[in-house]
Write a protein that binds this DNA or RNA. Structure first.
Length: 568
DNA sequence: TTCCGTTGCGCG
DNA sequence: AAAGCGCGCAACGGAA
C-alpha cells in the first residue's frame, strides 16, 4: 500500500492512503507523532511511504529509532523525470510524458543543493517559524499526492515503464540508504589515523603551521633550486624555478615531473604526496569529520549526471587508500567489503548483447577471457575496452580498437552509436532510463557553425568530440550505476531481513559505505557469512532485474575483514 | 576582504 | 593526428 505523508509542526503530520493509481480519498488524517505512526503502520503490512524528500523527512525518523522499508521520493523521482522530459524553460528532449512536465512542481521547486537548503533554513530562522501550520501542511499534502500521481502516469508513459519504474524505486531506496549510512557512519579509528599522520608527516603542528616533514622537504626543494625561495604549492613559482635552471615544463603535475631530470624532482614528488594527505585528510579533516568513532559524510543521491552518488564535505568518495587502515570494525564486529569486478565492461557486454563478448563476460576474469582476440595479451584487451568506453585512442589504442571492432562488432557499435548521438546533440539513456543532460546552448551555438578549417571550427570539432566521449561513456557508466543501485536496494532489504530485532534501528548490521561499485557492511562477526550470501544474492538479482536474460555475470568479490585496508 | 577561475590530485 | 569518462576539495593568485 502507498501512503502519502506530509510533515507538520513538531512531530505531527498529515497522512493519506493512496489507491494504486496514486489517488487519495478525503482529507488527510492528522498524526500527533509521525515516527510512532510510521512504526505502527508497518505492523499491518508492507507500506511504500510517499513523501516529498527523504533527505528532509527520514533523518528525524531514524533519530526516533524508526526505519522504513520502502518509499517513493518525489524529489528524486522528479529529477529523473525532468532529466528525461526536459524542463519547460530549456530546449530539452520531449519524450513521452512531456505534456505532463511540471505537474509535480513541489519537488522541483525545492533547492537541491546544500547551500540552497542552508539559505532556506537561515531565511526561516530570520523571518518566521520553519515549520508549517496545519493549513500549509494540508496544502502540501494535496500537492504531494497530485505530484506523486502525476509521476506514476509519467513513469507509465515511458517506452520502458518497467525499467523506469524500477529506476524510480531504487533511486528512492538510495535516498533511504544515504540517510541511514550518514546516521550510522563509517567506523573510523581516529587514533589509528593520527598515528599514521604522525608517522608520515611528523608531529602534529600548531594550527596554521606546516608539519615538520613538509617544512623540511620545502627547504630542501629551495636548496635544490640554488637557494631561491620556491613555494612547492605554487605551480607558477615551480615552473619559473625550473625555467631558471633551463628546464621548460608544460605543467607541474607529478606524471610530468617524473620525467624531468633535476635534483628537486624526487623531493617535489614526495612533497606533493604528503602535502595532499595533509591538506585533504590531515588533522583538520579528522577534527571536522570524525567524532564518536564515526565518519559521517553527507551523500548526494543522484548527485552525478550518470546516477552515481556524490558527497558533500569530507570527500568521502576520495578517501585515499593509505587511510583505509583507519576504517576498523567495532570489537566483535567485522566489515564485509564487497566489490563488483570489472563492472563497466561487463555492463557494456550486457547492453550490447554481443554474443562473443557476453560469453567472455560470463567468466571470472573478463579481460583474460578476451585476451585471445588480442594475441593472448590481457593488458591489450583491457586497453581496448577502456578506450572503447572512454573514447580514448592514444598510443596503440586505435589498433586495439580495430581488433575490438572486428571481433566484437556489436559492442563497438553500441558505444559508437552513443557517441554519434552525443555529437548530434541528442540525449542518450541508461539501461533503466536515466537520461544524460542535453547539450548546453553554448555547445549548440559553437557546433552549429559550418565546417571551415579555421580556429572556430577547431573549437567546434573539439566540443563535438568531447560530447561524443561523454555520451559514449554515459551509457556505460550510468547503466553500471543502475546496476549498483539495484544491488544496493536489494542488499538493504536482505540486511533488514537478517536483523531479527523488531525495532530494526541502526544498531544492527548495515551498510556504512557505498562507492560506485563497492559497498561495506558493518555487522556482528557471527553474521558475516549471512551478509556475504546476501551480497551475492543481491548481485545476482541486480543482473537479472537490470539486464534480464543475459549470459553476462556480475561477480562480486567479498572480503570479511577487521580493517578496510585488509580487503583486496 | 571576498570571489572565482585555474591547477593538481584523490577516488571509481 | 589526437582525444580518452565521471566527480570533490584545497591552494594559489588575480579580480572585484
Amino acid at each position: 500500500m502507498r501512503v502519502a505523508v506530509a510533515a507538520g509542526p513538531g512531530r505531527t503530520a498529515l497522512l493519506k492512503e493512496l489507491a494504486d493509481d496514486g489517488t487519495g480519498q478525503g482529507a488527510g488524517v492528522l498524526l500527533n507523532d509521525l515516527p510512532d505512526a510510521v512504526a505502527s503502520y508497518a505492523l499491518n503490512g508492507p507500506v511504500r511511504w510517499v513523501w516529498a524528500d527523504s533527505a528532509q523527512t527520514y533523518p528525524a525518523l531514524l533519530r526516533a529509532g524508526v526505519r522504513v522499508d520502502r518509499c517513493h521520493d518525489v524529489r528524486l523521482v522528479e529529477a529523473l523525470l525532468t532529466g528525461r522530459d526536459g524542463r519547460p524553460d530549456e530546449p530539452g528532449p520531449a519524450g513521452p510524458g512531456a505534456a505532463e512536465r511540471g505537474a509535480g512542481g513541489l519537488a522541483a521547486d525545492r533547492p537541491a543543493s546544500g547551500p540552497g537548503r542552508l539559505a532556506a533554513g537561515q531565511q526561516a530562522a530570520l523571518f518566521g517559524p520553519a515549520e508549517p501550520g496545519l493549513g500549509e501542511t494540508s496544502a502540501a499534502l494535496d500537492q504531494l499526492v497530485a505530484a506523486h500521481a502525476g509521476q506514476l502516469r509519467r513513469i507509465a508513459a515511458d517506452p520502458h515503464p518497467g525499467r523506469f519504474g524500477l529506476l524510480a524505486a531504487v533511486e528512492s531506496a538510495g535516498g533511504l540508504v544515504a540517510a541511514e549510512m550518514q546516521a550510522r557512519g563509517v567506523p573510523w579509528r581516529a587514533d589509528v589515523h593520527d598515528t599514521l599522520l604522525a608517522s608520515l608527516l611528523g608531529a602534529r603542528p600548531p594550527a596554521g603551521l606546516q608539519p615538520p616533514r613538509l617544512a623540511e622537504l620545502a627547504s630542501r626543494i629551495s636548496a635544490a633550486f640554488g637557494g631561491r625561495p620556491v613555494n612547492p604549492d605554487s605551480p607558477a613559482q615551480l615552473t619559473k624555478a625550473f625555467a631558471t635552471d633551463g628546464i621548460r615544463i608544460t605543467s607541474t603535475r607529478s606524471w610530468v615531473l617524473r620525467d624531468v631530470d633535476h635534483p628537486a624532482v624526487p623531493l617535489l614528488l614526495e612533497y606533493k604526496e604528503l602535502a595532499r594527505l595533509h591538506t585533504a585528510n590531515g588533522w583538520a579533516w579528522l577534527d571536522e569529520w570524525v567524532s564518536g568513532g564515526r565518519f559521517r559524510p553527507e551523500y548526494v543521491v543522484g548527485g552525478v549526471v550518470s546516477g552515481r552518488w556524490a558527497t558533500r564535505g569530507g570527500g568521502a568518495l576520495q578517501i585515499p587508500r593509505v587511510l583505509r587502515r583507519a576504517v576498523v570494525a567495532d570489537p566483535g564486529w567485522v566489515l564485509v567489503v564487497a566489490d563488483a569486478a570489472q563492472l563497466e565492461p561487463r555492463v557494456l557486454a550486457a547492453l550490447a548483447g554481443d554474443h562473443a563478448f557476453a560469453e567472455a563476460a560470463g567468466t571470472g576474469d573478463l579481460y583474460q577471457a578476451l585476451a585471445g582476440a588480442f594475441g593472448g595479451d590481457r593488458a591489450k584487451a583491457k586497453v581496448a575496452l577502456l578506450s572503447a568506453m572512454y573514447g580514448g585512442a592514444g598510443g596503440e589504442a586505435s589498433q586495439l580498437l580495430a581488433v575490438l571492432r572486428r571481433r566484437f562488432p556489436r559492442a563497438d557499435q553500441y558505444v559508437e552509436a552513443a557517441a554519434r548521438a552525443g555529437e548530434e546533440g541528442r540525449v542518450v539513456r541508461s539501461r533503466l532510463g536515466r537520461a544524460c543532460p542535453p547539450p548546453s546552448a553554448e555547445w549548440r551555438g559553437l557546433t552549429a557553425a559550418p565546417d571551415e578549417p579555421d580556429a572556430a571550427d577547431q573549437r567546434a570539432r573539439r566540443s563535438l568530440r568531447a560530447r561524443g566521449r561523454f555520451t559514449r561513456n554515459f551509457v556505460v557508466q550510468a547503466s553500471a550505476a543502475d546496476w549498483a543501485l539495484v544491488l544496493l536496494a536489494g542488499l538493504r532489504r536482505r540486511l533488514a531481513e537478517l536483523d531479527d530485532r523488531p525495532a530494526g534501528g541502526l544498531d544492527g548490521p548495515g551498510l556504512v559505505f557505498f562507492q560506485h561499485d563497492e559497498v561495506i557492511v558493518h555487522c556482528p562477526e557471527a553474521m558475516a557469512g549471512d551478509v556475504v550470501a546476501a551480497v551475492a544474492a543481491a548481485a545476482e538479482e541486480a543482473g537479472r532485474l537490470v539486464f534480464g536474460d543475459t549470459p553476462v555475470r556480475f561477480p562480486v568479490s567479498t572480503a570479511v575483514v577487521s580493517s578496510y585496508a585488509d580487503a583486496k
